[in-house]
């Protein structure tokens, strides 16, 4: 391995982390502004032009807040839980391509960190690890509300992980590969959302539940659980949970766009490879808008209904979709 390749990887990883954390900051502003519009308010517009400095102000506020550790808390896990929550969300998009190859200074640079042949399996593995942070935060706080929130979120994430995994099967069967690059290339002419509407719907709902967003934000139901698993957290530790939630939103939007909406593909992307990241960014922005729109519109679903939807509707639908897709692929000879 030559040194140039090594630095290329380091720089790409750094860019991914910076884009995700910067994206987190501006996703919060995006959400507050859009929700304000939907509720006929204006939203934060004081800090900087159009309120663009609001995330900076929020960050400074959170850094200077006092950090409390409850007396009965398990100190080690209380400290580790926010870190365990943030890390998977930062690394999960490592296999999502941003574009094809571009040339910078005579060196062909591929606009993705890595293209492994088990990319989707990697995403599932990292997603399944991210449950721990939330469960441990609930347990380590030594607070009944937090523990209930943690248990609820664990049950919810385990239940919807199955539907999430099954929704991956459709695109994988159509593309004949687990690599996200191959899946995107297979959508050159037709997006998979057209061929796999059921899988798309499954992915959309299951990913909402995986990132604990409304209407599935049961783990943090304010009215019944104060703030759920992060009730005892303050200052930067709370900010890490907040960060993980928004980065996960961006990550599911990126993965969903790659699986069903053609990823970085778009008109003229063959001739101008720099358009790839732009298309991906636009798709992610639209996806995030829909997530915010849903939060502003739908009431929270009741917990038993949530479990019933996951196990009795989405899981069988996913199985059926996998079987039907496999049959069609074999019959057509894809």
């Amino acid at each position: 391995m030559d040194a140039g390749l090594f630095w290329e990887w380091v720089i790409k990883s750094l860019i991914i982390v910076l884009v995700l954390t910067g994206g987190f900051a501006y996703a919060t502003l995006y959400e507050r502004r859009v929700i304000a519009r939907i509720q006929v308010r204006i939203g934060p517009n004081r800090a900087g032009p159009f309120g663009l400095l609001q995330p900076v102000a929020d960050g400074i506020k959170l850094i200077f807040k006092e950090e409390l550790t409850p007396a009965g808390a398990d100190k080690v896990l209380f400290f580790l839980a926010p870190i365990i929550t943030v890390l998977p969300s930062l690394v999960i998009t490592a296999v999502v391509p941003w574009g094809d190859t571009v040339v910078i200074g005579g060196r062909a640079i591929r606009l993705y960190l890595t293209d492994i042949n088990v990319g989707l399996l990697y995403i599932l593995a990292v997603a399944s690890i991210s449950v721990y942070g939330i469960v441990l935060a609930g347990w380590a706080s030594n607070n009944k509300y937090a523990l209930l929130g943690g248990l609820r979120s664990a049950a919810q994430m385990i239940s919807y992980e199955l539907a999430l995994g099954l929704s991956f099967v459709g695109p994988v069967l159509l593309a004949g590969s687990l690599s996200l690059m191959d899946i995107i290339n297979a959508q050159k002419h037709l997006w998979f959302v057209v061929l796999q509407p059921a899988a798309f719907l499954l992915y959309f709902l299951a990913s909402l539940a995986e990132v604990n967003r409304a209407p599935f934000d049961m783990p943090e139901a304010e009215q019944e659980l104060t703030a759920g698993y992060h009730a005892e957290y303050s200052g930067m530790k709370f900010a890490l949970f907040f960060m993980a939630e928004y980065i996960k939103m961006i990550a599911v939007a990126m993965i969903g766009a790659s699986l069903f909406l053609g990823g970085y593909m778009g008109p003229f992307v063959d001739r101008f490879p720099w358009l790839g990241p732009v298309y991906l960014f636009l798709k992610v922005a639209v996806w995030l808008f829909v997530l915010i729109w849903l939060r502003a519109t739908l009431p929270r679903i009741r917990y038993d209904r949530l479990m019933q939807l996951g196990w009795k509707v989405m899981f069988p639908l996913g199985l059926l979709n996998a079987v039907v897709t496999a049959f069609v692929v074999v019959l057509v000879g894809g």
Partner: peptide, 26 residues
């Protein structure tokens, strides 16, 4: 062996042990 590796993490570390932790807490 990336396939075995990620299957190991997803199934053992991610699914089975989450249930263990869940039951211990419950």
């Amino acid at each position: 062996a990336p396939f075995i590796s990620f299957a190991q993490v997803a199934i053992y570390a991610g699914s089975i042990m989450v249930l263990f932790v869940f039951v211990i807490m419950l």
